[in-house]
Amino acid sequence: MAQGSGNRSRLLLVILLVTALFFVTLDLRGVSLTKGSRSITQTMLSPVQKTVSTIFSPLGRFLSDVKNFGKTKTELDQALAQNKKLSSQLVLASETKGESAQLNGVLDLAGRGGYKVVAARVIGHGSASSFSQTITINQGSRSGIKKDMTVISQNGLVGLVKNITSTSAIVLLMSDPSFKVGVKITRSQSIGILQGQGNSSYSFVLLDPAGAIKVGDNLVTNGSDNNHPFIPGVPVGHVTVLDNSTAALVQSATVESYANLNDLGVVSVVLAAPAVAPSVPLRPTPNPTVTVLVTPTPTPSTSTTPTVSPSPTTSIKKK
């Protein structure tokens, strides 16, 4: 009797393992069934994510601030002192202001580059059960977003669109270890490859044997054919540490990105790049000092509040 039960268990184990391996094989061979199932899941999840994001984003940002407590203790003390004076309504208003500032910043960068962009709110982050680094945004194919489009924030490159549904898209962040982008040094125009490492630092390998890397060098995207996946001239980061290995065949360095990927509230997807790449390398503008006005907030207009259905397409001409 016990032996029969043991045999049934072994048979069940074999069936389940073979089924799982069958799915893995199908996926690795490119059968669309598995990709379709994830797309359906994303379509089902995105309305829930939008709702939850609207409700819980203040909590998420609060925990993000706690995470950076050691780094920005002074700023946090000031913020906490201010928070004591504010009512819950004003906290929500400052949340909107913060997103508005990010939106203004990203539109400013897009305007200086002459990009045609669509603004989007971040409604989800990658699952902790996978090692990939992604965000989910609340705009999809209905807004003109396609796969492999460049995504920027107010400070520079964020990543590229990995998957889309009609109302949402998943963006692969530039910090993901599988993310690689061709970049060039603005000072010397030498080109190289930047790769994510899963954290806030990036590895940069120079492809130009005659070129040289210096600490503080600014990097911008080099651009791809037909501007997909990367448009040229987007600020990426600056060199912080040189890797002085004499045995290395190529020069390499550690880079810090301009964009803070842990604090993304609003991003923009670049729908179209200008016909000619920006002649002057773009650099992100420093964040302005945020002043919280303790006055009753009127109903916000759509031009300053990304939360109230931002205009799906924002085209800004280069001045």
């Binding site: 799982a20 996926d27 598995t34 998957n163």
Partner: peptide, 27 residues
């Protein structure tokens, strides 16, 4: 345990942010 493990894996494989092949978590 086997059945719950398999079912939990299949559901986790549906994660749209995952870059792993479908079925990896089930396995």
């Amino acid at each position: 345990s086997l059945v719950v493990g398999f079912l939990a894996g299949i559901v986790l494989d549906l994660s749209p942010t995952s870059n792993a092949p479908f079925g990896q978590w089930a396995l």
